[in-house]
């Protein structure tokens, strides 16, 4: 709060204001010297103060006043009956098997739940029906190929949660690719983004803008995948 708007607010130190601290008494000086010496001898006995943690308070009341969007009924989650999760080493090996130039794989969890291939097909169809209620359309930078890919991935994550999948993250991620070849109506010679899905029938590439699905081994740009984010 600026109480004096005509003058800039200044911080004045006592010394600069012409005031001096009263001289310390000899006993105090002695005590300060002893304490100072002890501190020097022991190093820093007190830990550095931890940075204060800030907590974000979600504005749930404001959100409650907003309308809800009705999305079509999603396909029921099909849990692949595999006792083992798909380890990151196996993901890397699957890429190595499909291409001599495997992409960099970025991940947080080191094991993933594979999708049922038939669920993937049903999900691709469901995702296409989100365009109207969510008003999804291509917009340069704002909602381009990588947003389509992340949107596809984000809703797959949500449906897995809805289906009660608690074993771990699902094997759905997105990738950056240089289109050496045209694929699914997207021209060659540009950087692009697609979805990568690990299923019980192998690794698949999905073009989220039109729902084209291809096995990674048949994907024409498998040698120019640059990075995958699982």
């Amino acid at each position: 709060m600026n109480q004096c708007p005509d003058r800039p607010v200044e911080t004045v130190r006592p010394a600069a204001a012409g005031r001096r601290s009263p001289p310390a008494r000899p006993a105090r000086r002695w005590a300060r010297g002893v304490i100072g010496g002890l501190l020097l001898a022991l190093g820093t006995p007190f830990p550095a103060a931890a940075a204060e943690i800030e907590y974000l308070v979600p504005d749930l009341a404001a959100l409650a006043r907003r309308p809800m969007t009705e999305l079509p009924a999603p396909p029921p989650w099909v849990a692949v009956a595999s006792p083992n999760l798909w380890k990151i080493e196996e993901v890397t090996a699957a890429f190595r098997q499909a291409t001599p130039r495997p992409p960099q794989i970025n991940y947080v969890r080191s094991a993933f739940v594979r999708l049922d291939y038939h669920w993937l097909v049903a999900y691709v169809d469901w995702f296409a029906h989100l365009r109207e209620p969510l008003k999804i359309h291509f917009s340069d930078e704002q909602f381009d190929c990588d947003k389509f890919s992340r949107c596809f991935t984000a809703f797959a994550d949500l449906l897995a949660k809805k289906g009660g999948e608690k074993r771990g993250s699902i094997a759905v991620g997105w990738a950056i690719v240089f289109n050496d070849q045209p694929f699914a109506g997207i021209a060659a010679g540009i950087s692009h983004s697609v979805v990568i899905v690990g299923t019980n029938e192998g690794l698949f590439v999905v073009e989220p803008q039109n729902g084209t699905i291809s096995a990674l081994r048949d994907y024409p740009n498998r040698d120019s995948l640059l990075a995958v984010y699982l």
Binding site: L63, P67, T69, E70, L71, P72, A73, P74, P76, K162
Partner: peptide, 8 residues
């Protein structure tokens, strides 16, 4: 099958 109610 019920649809998905999603917050705007």
């Amino acid at each position: 099958r019920p649809g998905l109610q999603f917050p705007e």
